[in-house]
Design a binder for these strands. Structure first.
Ligand SMILES: [Zn+2]
Ligand SMILES: [Zn+2]
Ligand SMILES: [Zn+2]
Ligand SMILES: [Zn+2]
Lengths: 172, 172
DNA sequence: AACAATAATGTTACATTATAACATTACATA
DNA sequence: TATGTAATGTTATAATGTAACATTATTGTT
């Protein structure tokens, strides 16, 4: 009798590479809705400012830069300054609503804020878009390797650069 | 008849977590020697400036910051400026003699510049020191997952934060 | 040796990313 | 309403990194 532990693992695609043409309005709306619910449940305040920053992060599936957000924020909210953006981003990151891509100093929206998860990012050099996995195999393997030398993991960061399927296809 | 492919994989510890007391002078000398040889073989110039920067990176097993290097460089070389450091670091990174830890904006020496390799960094929050693996299992798994959605990898970045064995022991 | 081409470094200025510190305003709740 | 806390405004500055051009050192050629 055997148990297939593998089937019990949580391997999620948090954000796939989106097709070039998709109704991105839906992505954005879903993200805002999820954020509202997340904050509701926890009694946290998704203020207009925070929501606006989240919307700006979700403008696309490409990572956006803090000062880019700031520029756009200023259009309708002249009193914005760097702390305005960084505070909102801090809040959103703490709540798992956005992630920072460390190797780009840029931020992407998370499709699954409901629970903390491991993140593995795949970033296309051509179109700039990012896919996010929550892959228990990768996470577990890293965990296992770490445990071999007695290392206790707090935080795992995996950022992979390369070329997505669609961009490779369109180069043929 | 079976073949143990696993045994054929290249799983290296490029840099282990060092014991608190070890003869670090040896680490440094070995690194400089390896760098000299690497450059000799390829006809590249490990100039005094580049060697000095490499030595400063190898001061310890903790990542060092560019402006920290700059401060020390100025002590014996008053004409140093940011480009001085960043150019030397660029050269050393291209040659695989140092790596940048993206999540810290800091640099560590590499124990194995002889060949390009995958790198997985484990960074201790307590002592600040860094271990580097070149683990084909992790690399291979990420590769495999990427291929599932047609992603072709150029560059892999794995930075794991947590607590090393020694620091955990000394907290008991 | 003289020369030209290239590589490395010097120098100044600036761009980008992020935080500190303190004032003000909005919100919750007693 | 009073009071404390959370959020935002505001100013200044820190930390990280690069552009552009001048100068010097090195290499290879005549
Ligand atoms: Zn979309
Ligand atoms: Zn792409
Ligand atoms: Zn050492
Ligand atoms: Zn430690």
């Amino acid at each position: 009798m055997s148990v297939n532990y593998n089937s019990m693992k949580k391997n999620k695609i948090i954000n796939p590479f989106k097709p070039a043409k998709h109704k991105h309005q839906d992505c954005l709306q879903a993200a805002i809705k999820a954020a509202k619910q997340h904050c509701d449940v926890l009694g946290l305040r998704l203020t207009p400012l925070r929501q606006r920053v989240l919307e700006l992060v979700w403008q696309s599936h490409e990572p956006v830069k803090a000062y880019g957000i700031l520029d756009e924020l200023k259009q309708g909210h002249s009193s914005s300054a760097p702390p305005t953006v960084y505070r909102a981003l801090d809040f959103l990151q703490e709540q798992g609503l956005v992630h920072k891509i460390e190797s780009l100093n840029a931020y992407v929206g998370c499709g699954d804020p409901k629970e903390h998860h491991s993140s593995q990012f795949f970033i296309c050099h051509d179109c700039g878009s990012v896919a996010e996995l929550d892959d228990a195999d990768i996470s577990g393997l890293i965990q296992k390797k770490a445990s071999h030398f007695g290392f206790k993991i707090d935080n795992e960061m995996v950022e992979i650069k390369g070329h997505c399927q669609e961009c490779r296809d369109s180069r043929k």
